[in-house]
């Protein structure tokens, strides 16, 4: 496995500053930052997930964050990892955490995708644009999330969960989406994931 590390380059020097007064506002001074410390092991500092499997939640739309947390906590979106953590978020205050992550600057995933696979995904994406729109940024008014720049592994896994009716099983509002997913072969799902991951 090649682990890609990200350093906060240039912003901090190797030499130690021995100032005596309190520092200027740092990355942990934002409201909600302390409550979000339980999230960074998987989702990265400020929600900037560095891995292929966990979604980037930095800059996430608060409505989408809250829906995800409520669905996970209620077991509607089954996940042995996220169900306990969603209950933690509800205990800690879902609005505080939604505001915190929404306020964090979002970078696209560091996971690289092959240009040829992206091109195949672009061609295949014509079946997705009616909801996710041409740019991939979705439509909050209709409850359609922004897919751009998410890790391809996360996007592919979610599509496979929809396809198998394992994400929000039985949810009538997702019926059309799941029917569409069932018509898409698994290798094309990987193409679509690479394409939406590449969008900026």
């Amino acid at each position: 496995m090649r682990t890609i590390f990200r350093l906060i380059g240039g912003s901090l020097s190797l030499s130690v500053v021995l100032a005596s007064g309190p520092a200027a506002a740092g990355p942990l001074d934002a409201p909600g930052a302390a409550k979000a410390l339980a999230c960074s092991a998987c989702h990265g500092l400020g929600g900037q997930s560095p891995s292929n499997m966990m979604p980037i939640i930095a800059g996430i739309a608060p409505w989408y964050f809250k829906k995800a947390i409520e669905d996970y906590a209620a077991g509607r979106r089954p996940s042995p990892e996220m169900e306990p953590y969603a209950k933690y978020v509800l205990e800690a205050g879902v609005d505080d955490l939604a505001s915190y992550f929404a306020s964090q600057p979002r970078q696209p995933t560091a996971v690289r995708v092959d240009a040829g696979v992206v091109e195949r995904g672009r061609v295949a994406s014509q079946q997705c644009v009616v909801c996710h729109v041409e740019s991939g940024k979705g439509d909050p008014a209709k409850g359609i999330p922004d897919l751009r720049g998410q890790p391809p592994g996360y996007l592919a896994n979610q599509m496979l969960l929809f396809k198998a009716d394992r994400r929000n099983p039985g949810d009538a509002t997702l019926k059309a989406l799941k029917e569409l997913m069932k018509s898409i072969p698994d290798d094309q799902i990987a193409d679509l994931a690479a394409y939406y991951s590449s969008l900026r």
């Binding site: 496995m1 682990t3 890609i4 590390f5 990200r6 350093l7 960074s40 092991a41 998987c42 989702h43 990265g44 500092l45 997930s49 560095p50 891995s51 292929n52 499997m53 966990m54 990892e81 592994g153 896994n157």
Partner: peptide, 19 residues
């Protein structure tokens, strides 16, 4: 699936500690 998530967890948490 959980094995893939384990790799994702490790990737993230090693950075959370050391990067």
């Amino acid at each position: 699936q959980w094995a893939q998530n384990a790799v994702g967890w490790a990737t993230s948490v090693w950075q959370d500690m050391l990067a």
